[in-house]
Design a protein around this nucleic acid. Structure first.
Length: 857
RNA sequence: GGGGCUGUGGCGGAAUGGUAGACGCUGCAGACUUAAAAUCUGUUGUCCUUUGGACGUGGGGGUUCAAGUCCCCCCAGCCCCA
């Protein structure tokens, strides 16, 4: 017998991609006759190659897009490139290339790779954020923000790398040193641009409540990030000075336990009060050596500088020392705090170091006021307040309220709401970013570039001979003429944080060719909000929060956008892989570790290899798989299937060779069983017979249950379960031996449903088999199969019979069986009788269709 | 330290409070083959005195006729914020 021809994956997949491309299958326009669905995957950074995380992300969004499409939605599924940013500059410096050339080469490569995945993407809307046609519109938005008081420039403290001559983001400071130069980071004051996200702090917080299709985890993280707190602000006097010091505290219930006052070294009064004291300069220098992040400040050793001055408690009139302390942040609250060592760990550490008083004022439950002492750990929990006059006996919450009320009553303080959220610092002293569209004129000051002169384009001719910002030292670029007065002026050389681009790219997709505006309002009104956004949880705070801020800011500037950009959010897990080390202790690629017959691992040249932990794929640990190799070997469908079927999408996925091979076998099996079955199937569109055999009825029931089940699973992002159901249906169909016309009709019905159900996951194979089944339509234009409700219900149901909660038998009943009947049949079971021997029957619980439980004792 | 998530066979994982282990991977046995690959069939939680039974969802309590699922305490791992 002739062996059946193998499924030629490469040719077939390419053939169908060509069909979709020729038919422009995924290009969409606004269409009010259908409900719309905007399915969005987070746009990739063009690093050069796609990685498995991308494959997971886009496989998920593609399933949703194709499924929604089959369900009758007008689906927008776009793609673009987050193309500005530091890696391009690093690559340029290392390889002597240009950031722009490097980026566009990478885009071309990665686009080819994404195309090979067979994604249902409208490529006519492709956007690259480094394109001046893109950043032109965001420069306009920047100016709009400025005019609406949402963008401003102010002097602020930054991490400064003295070797690279540049500002570092907090993430670029490692152990107090620059991540590239290794030089100790300094704190410097520089003029920086900010977006006023804090203006919407309350609204961003409230909006979280409406995001019912977001993971709770992300909502909690955003909630905590915004960090709303209610506290008390009041002034302390300074002995023998006219000035007063405003402090803010979230724990006014503890103010009787205060023993010192601490000012941020950056506080305006700090210099004034202490700069003439010995050691002040050294102290400030020491403070400047720590980074600016909260974490850096928290981890740094607490150091203080005694000003020699005393502060007067406004209520108690007691006096306590005023320190400068490195752990007090100037931009949170008022930049000054009073220390309550007994109930704050930082304050306690500080107090122990400088030998300050520790006065407990909150008594932990089950402690005795007479004997309670603070050791090396502050008590920050809730308890009863004591040693505190009018607050005595209150708990934390009531104490806070009572303290605020008292200060307000005496008019010496007021309740204040504070946010942890800071304004968004967007200045970067880098070349490969969107130029801030402003000029500095000696006479006219800071003025925005006129709209008709946008975009302010990046010059191409730059060099990296020296550290620092190439824009700043470019021979001509920054020199310009003030359009107000005509005198010489200079351009702003800061560029924007790349989170700027990703905060609105989903709006540009809606109207990518628009030369006049970033997007037309009518496009936004039709497509927004994004119905389903999919991406990594690492963007849970910043990107998603900035995008939410942008909607509010754009709205204030007259753009028509919804408050919330993403109605639904799904955050996928990471892709992990086992790690391997050779006998010399070097990490090696999984493809270089070869498993021997005795299960041990070796390199090609026979070196012993040890297998290590299964962790997130990373280049440094070399535990990476190139998805292109997988697609080239097994095909896009198999790669997509494996990545969708192996784990629930929100959890981490362990990439295994066995798993991908299993998926590949299933692809081949589907092709083989359906092509083998073709000769036995009736022709397309043949009329449904009137009668079916019992087994055909059963098969049809399985088919229709799968139609409903797979849809439910996809709706709930249970892609692994959807695949399991598809396999079940496939197993049922494969094992079915038709005997009459009804049987073959049911078999065709089943196979056709099967193909349509797995189309979202394996679209190439689905198109191929749909065509082989005799259809001249294509699946991208075919709806989700309909189901017959009558076939979802079974005639009989098999349930368990428990005696005292333990299963003793199973019985099969008519599905409309009465409770009495079910009880009778259950009790008649020999095993149930046996279990009941010697016991008295108390009662029988019958849950129809579920269980019978016999209670006896 | 605070907040959150997770914990089920050898492995990935299923299970509206109702027959725990769907579906797959691996393993084992068999068929086909000169042989291998591929494919197909069966089997695969542990234990026992094996036509049956006991145990079993990180550990300990509780609620319930019934708990992987709900509540309390503890342990471990991961993530976020410190």
């Amino acid at each position: 017998m002739e062996t059946p021809e193998r499924y030629n994956i490469k040719e077939t997949e390419a053939k169908w991609r060509k069909v979709w491309e020729d038919k422009k299958s995924f290009e969409v326009t606004e269409d009010t006759s259908k409900p719309k669905s905007y399915v969005l995957a987070m746009l990739p950074y063009p690093s050069g190659r796609i990685h498995v995380g991308h494959v997971r992300n886009y496989s998920l969004s593609d399933v949703v897009a194709r499924y929604k499409r089959a369900k009758g939605f007008n689906v927008l599924n776009p793609m673009g490139w987050d193309a500005l940013g530091l890696p391009a500059e690093n690559a340029a410096m290392e390889r002597n290339t240009h950031p722009k050339d490097w980026t566009y080469e990478n885009i071309a490569q990665m686009k080819a790779q994404l195309l090979s995945m067979g994604l249902a993407i409208d490529w006519s809307r492709e956007v690259a954020t480094c394109d001046p046609d893109y950043y032109k519109h965001e420069q306009k938005m920047f100016i709009d923000f400025y005019k609406n008081n949402l963008a401003y420039r102010k002097e602020s403290i930054v991490n400064w790398d003295p070797v690279e001559d540049t500002v570092l983001a907090n993430e670029q400071v490692v152990d107090g040193k620059g991540w590239r130069s290794g030089a100790p980071v300094e704190r410097r004051k520089l003029y920086q641009w900010f977006f006023k996200i804090t203006e919407f702090a309350d609204d961003l917080l409230k909006g979280i409540e409406t995001l019912d299709r977001w993971p709770d985890k992300v909502r909690t993280m955003q909630h905590n990030w915004i960090g709303k707190s209610r506290g008390l602000e009041f002034s302390w006097g300074i002995k023998d000075h006219d000035e007063t010091i405003d402090v803010y505290t979230t724990r006014p219930d503890t103010f009787f336990g205060a023993s010192f006052l601490a000012l941020s070294p950056d506080h305006p009064l700090a210099k004034k009060l202490a700069s003439d004291k010995d050691g002040y300069d050294d102290f400030i220098k020491a403070c400047q050596a720590t980074g600016t992040s909260e974490e850096a400040i928290e981890k740094a050793e607490k150091i203080g500088f005694y000003t020699g001055l005393k502060a007067t408690h406004p209520l108690l009139k007691t006096e306590m020392p005023i320190y400068l302390a490195n752990f007090v942040l100037m931009d949170y609250g008022t930049g000054a705090v009073f220390g309550v060592p007994a109930h704050d760990q930082r304050d306690l550490d500080f107090a122990r170091k400088y030998d300050l008083e520790v006065i407990p004022v909150v008594l932990p439950p089950e402690e005795d006021a007479a004997t309670f002492k603070i050791g090396s750990e502050a008590f920050i929990g809730d308890g009863l307040i004591y040693n505190s006059d009018f607050l005595n006996g209150l708990n934390k919450e009531d104490g806070i309220k009572a303290a605020i009320a008292k200060f307000e009553e005496l008019k010496i303080g007021k309740g204040v709401t504070n946010f942890r959220l800071r304004d968004w610092g967007i200045s970067r002293q880098r070349y490969w970013g969107c130029p801030v569209p402003f000029i500095h004129c000696d006479d006219c000051g800071l003025i925005p570039v006129p709209e008709d002169q946008l975009p302010v384009e990046l010059p191409y001719d730059i060099n990296y001979d020296k550290p620092g910002n190439p824009l700043d030292r470019h021979p001509t670029w920054k020199h310009t003429i003030c359009h107000e007065c005509g005198k010489d002026a200079v351009r702003e050389t800061d560029t924007c944080d790349t989170f700027f681009e990703s905060s609105w790219y989903f709006l540009r997709y809606l109207d990518p060719q628009n030369k006049e505006r970033g997007f037309a309002n009518e496009k936004s009104n039709y497509w927004m909000p994004v119905d389903q956004y999919i991406g990594g949880v690492e963007h849970a705070v910043l990107h998603l929060l900035y995008s939410r801020f942008f909607m509010r800011a754009l709205k204030k500037c007259g753009y028509e956008v919804p408050d919330e950009p993403f109605a639904g959010l799904f955050t996928q897990g990471m892709v992990t892989h086992a790690t391997y080390k050779d006998s010399d202790g070097n990490w090696i690629f999984p493809t270089d570790a070869i498993q021997q017959e005795d299960k041990s691992w070796q390199t090609k040249d026979g070196k012993a290899v040890t297998q290590g932990a299964v962790i997130k794929m990373s280049k440094s640990k070399k535990n990476v798989i190139d998805p292109q190799d997988i697609i080239d070997t097994y095909g896009a469908d198999a790669a997509r299937l494996f990545i969708l079927s192996d784990s629930p999408p929100e959890r981490d996925l362990e990439w295994t060779e066995g798993g991908i091979e299993g998926a590949w076998r299933f692809v081949n099996k589907l092709h083989r069983t359906i092509t083998d079955a073709l000769p036995t199937l009736p022709t397309v569109g043949i009329v449904q017979p009137n009668n079916f055999s019992d087994k055909a009825k059963e098969l049809r029931s399985t088919t229709h249950k799968a139609i409903v089940g797979v849809a439910e699973d996809i709706d709930n992002f249970h892609m692994n379960k959807a695949v399991a159901r598809i396999r079940e249906l496939s197993n049922a169909l494969t094992g079915f031996k038709p005997a009459d016309d009804g049987d073959t009709w049911a078999l065709r019905e089943g196979y056709e449903a099967l193909v349509r159900l797995f189309n979202p996951m394996m679209p190439h194979l689905a198109e191929e088999l749909w065509s082989q089944l005799g259809h001249d339509t294509i699946l991208t234009e075919t709806s989700w199969p309909t189901h017959d409700k009558k076939l979802l219900k079974d005639d009989t149901v098999t349930i368990g019979v428990q005696v005292n909660g333990k299963v003793r038998a199973t019985i099969t009943l008519a599905s409309d069986c009465s409770k009495d009947e079910a009880e009778k049949i259950a009790l008649a079971e020999p095993n149930v009788q046996k279990a009941l021997e010697g016991l008295t029957l108390h009662k029988v619980i019958v849950v129809p269709g579920r269980i019978v439980n016999v209670v006896a004792g």
